[in-house]
């Protein structure tokens, strides 16, 4: 197996994740898309680990999984907060950034 097949797979996954982040209106779905991105990263890490024949890649993948869990937790909490305040989790209506 060549390294690139994993990396390219990850690249597609990453791009799909980005697409999701950019297009989905539902906050939960946006978070899910973020998970895709993180997964793509994980695949890369593991693939590089295998390529280099060491375990650093695996170690970091595990860390990423942990961080992802934390991120989902906080993210979902924010979505909940948003839902509670606005009765909607439509990201396309989020315009607080406009100031």
């Amino acid at each position: 197996m060549i390294l690139n097949q994993f990396l390219l797979l990850a690249a597609v996954l990453f791009s799909l994740g980005v697409y999701g982040v950019l297009t989905r209106r539902n906050g939960v779905l946006v978070l899910m898309s973020v998970e895709l991105i993180l997964n793509a990263v994980n695949i890369n890490l593991v693939a590089f680990g295998a390529f280099q024949d060491n375990v650093q890649g695996d170690v970091f993948a595990v860390f990423v999984i942990a961080v992802a869990a934390a991120e989902v937790g906080v993210g979902l909490a924010m979505v909940l907060l948003m839902y509670r305040n606005r009765k909607s989790i439509d990201f396309s209506e989020v315009d607080m950034m406009r100031g």
């Binding site: 950019l22 990201f91 396309s92 209506e93 315009d95 950034m97 406009r98």
Partner: peptide, 15 residues
């Protein structure tokens, strides 16, 4: 006026 100009919101900026 501004609202209409900046339909993009977060996601557009992200894009």
């Amino acid at each position: 006026g501004l609202r209409r100009m900046q339909t993009g919101k977060v996601q557009q900026y992200a894009a």
